[in-house]
Design a protein around this nucleic acid. Sequence first.
DNA 1: CGGCGCGTTGAAATCACTCAAGGCACGTGG
DNA 2: CCACGTGCCTTGAGTGATTTCAACGCGCCG
Lengths: 247, 247
Amino acid sequence: MGARPVILVEEARREHCHKCDVRQKSVCRAIDDAGLAKLSAAAVIVDVKKGETFMMEGDPAIDFFNVTHGTVKLFKLMHDGRQQVVGFAGAGYLLGLAVSKAYASSAIAIEPVRMCRFSRTKLRTLMDDFPRLEALLLEIACDELAAAQEQMLLLGRKSAQERLASFLVSWGAITNPCAHGDRVALPMTRGEIADYLGLTIETVSRTFSKFKAEKRIQTLSNDEVILLDRAWLENLAEGAMASPSLA
Amino acid sequence: MGARPVILVEEARREHCHKCDVRQKSVCRAIDDAGLAKLSAAAVIVDVKKGETFMMEGDPAIDFFNVTHGTVKLFKLMHDGRQQVVGFAGAGYLLGLAVSKAYASSAIAIEPVRMCRFSRTKLRTLMDDFPRLEALLLEIACDELAAAQEQMLLLGRKSAQERLASFLVSWGAITNPCAHGDRVALPMTRGEIADYLGLTIETVSRTFSKFKAEKRIQTLSNDEVILLDRAWLENLAEGAMASPSLA
DNA sequence: CGGCGCGTTGAAATCACTCAAGGCACGTGG
DNA sequence: CCACGTGCCTTGAGTGATTTCAACGCGCCG
């Protein structure tokens, strides 16, 4: 519940958006080349160190953040310390949407993170200048809502194995958007995966071990796995093997 | 998985939006009195009988629906029949937001329901005519996202008792927006509550019985309860009584 | 009257949790 | 270079909250 240690790397300069390599993956794609100067002027580049919390649930929602490097964990806490991770945000992800007046969740960097920060008012100005931006924000919010509903299904109705399989497949798809790279990086800890899937760390670990023993995955290290049998994992994730399972 | 038996009651007429008693609670409040004729022209009033499914997960998202009377259940299904209810929608609620191209969830009327139907294209036209509408849609989507994250916390980390307490309090707040009416109508069955809370019907029933025995609630019938001890329920919902509980 | 949908309650089973011990990798300091 | 501490992960054993299985009650309706 401390301060928000956002470190300013450089004041916004014209042109930094031109070289941005995640623009086409992010909200910023709503703004054409001609508008990049305005975009650059509105965005402030910010670095956050691993382990730093830069957004607190309940705080007034002043800023939006667009992740350009690294991974962020979005989470909610209960009074007694129980934690629910509501999402992991990698490059191209926009933070701060779940908002009425206050942030709906907290955010912490689980790797060194670089982001573009937009104040609410500057974002409003940008939306007035570029109507496509507002439309794209709506589209993004709707997609997130759909993802949230998928996660509700996972949390409410799936078994531990189905949850981990779902996570590996969908996180793999997010981080390897094109091409079926079966190597998946896991910057988060087992405990964070557990808090995302509504399980305990021990159950997550045991399920990893089970998948390994069954040759469904291979672990290169604690934070990198290879999906050896993606089709099997996808079927499991969808609940296709509920009763007549193949051990 | 059948057809979509939407029954058309009357063709859209000018003026029907003028008399609408849920306008101020719904998206339609973005449109001022001067624009009501256009709104009326875009909306088609539709009645759906109890038990009819009028939106299917995965179907192309052609229409949006604004509920004016009755209650709708939004849900997702797994191949083996497991169901997760992702929300209940009463008067004023907009359906169809969780959308990229296809609906993210199915919708069924659990009471006789009346709605205004907007085609995607007509909604687009309305948004162009009334920019406030697009802004309000974004706001609504963000609020829903925040609610979805709250539900993730419930599903991932709360006990059965905490889940039911959360549900009673929040559903009560939705249906009795102003004033602390402690009488809460429950148009959904125990099974539907269970599928919303990620529990079984038996656990829901047992937890109702426990709350009754402890005089936290009183049941007038299966579909109407009185919250006798709202403060206690709210505390429980937040997890404030995790260890040092008062039986 | 009988059937059906819905809800309640009891008893037994189970999946995931809790508690506990130990391993491994990494960094720090002697 | 090695001892040590720490954080993270793994594994085992026992427990427990919730589920599963089963029976029953109740109201409604044909």
